[in-house]
Design a protein around this nucleic acid. Structure first.
Lengths: 130, 130
DNA sequence: TCTGTTCTTTTACAAACGTAAAAGTTATTG
DNA sequence: CAATAACTTTTACGTTTGTAAAAGAACAGA
């Protein structure tokens, strides 16, 4: 999958947050506060996203309505998998260890995660990809 | 912490893999196969890493010996935390869910992770940051 | 229909990145 | 010591990224 730059990803995230195809203004409204861009800036990112196959614009009057062509979970899964591979050779435990050892994730978080994994394991055998 | 570009990170990883301060040649030897760069390319990345405070070079004869100034786990923890925040708002379960739902992590991996978390929880209460 | 407003598209430009040639310096060896 | 080999430093250049002004198209109200 094509990779996104930081800004492109922020735009895409805002669009996903809209929950449905959205126009420029709606997307802008969902952007984090530190993204107070000129209109043309945002539209340029949307154009780059279109070229990368992440959105399809559709004219509606003089406005464009943008539809996401990649699902959020698909993108996030791919990016996280790449991250995991790049930094930890694919070892999940190593990643969690790093997060814990640098105080980025608390004991409580880890416990919650453990419980989540247990429940998932119990009720979702369809995730056995081995 | 200063962020690293992809290439800079690869160089840093190679240096970490050396396990001790290392010269250009040793670092080059640890680089992944797809990084067959000219000498000056690698040295340039090392210079950029120096400017970002990640390594300190020390002349030894006409060679430079590079010492890492940032520990691997510190860097990895920070990058993973940023990743987690950026894509999942800090929710570990969401990240694991995305990895599992896109088939990037198997049921067995998840089980292993759950066991790891349990053992960590049992024997390492010093990781309680709440 | 004229004109101001709202949108988009095109063009632009500086900074960061990937990559390496050229130039300069130190070591080595015949 | 002269010539060559090994290294590093400096300079360079095309691409991608962040950001927006300028230019062009469509709409809405007087």
């Amino acid at each position: 999958m094509e990779t996104l730059s930081h800004s492109e990803e922020q735009v895409m995230t805002a669009l996903w947050d809209c929950g449905r195809p959205a126009a420029r203004r709606e997307i802008a409204a969902r952007l984090p506060a530190d993204c107070r861009w000129a209109d043309s800036t945002l539209l340029n990112f949307l154009l780059r996203l279109e070229n990368k196959g992440f959105v399809r614009p559709e004219k509606q009057g003089n406005k464009n309505i943008y539809t996401p062509l990649v699902r959020r979970i698909t993108y996030c899964g791919a990016v996280s998998a790449a991250h995991l591979q790049r930094l930890y050779g694919g070892d999940l435990r190593a990643m969690l260890g790093a997060l814990a050892d640098t105080g980025r994730v608390s004991f409580t978080d880890m416990e919650r995660l453990a419980r989540y994994l247990d429940s998932r394991a119990a009720e979702s055998p369809e995730y056995d990809y081995d």
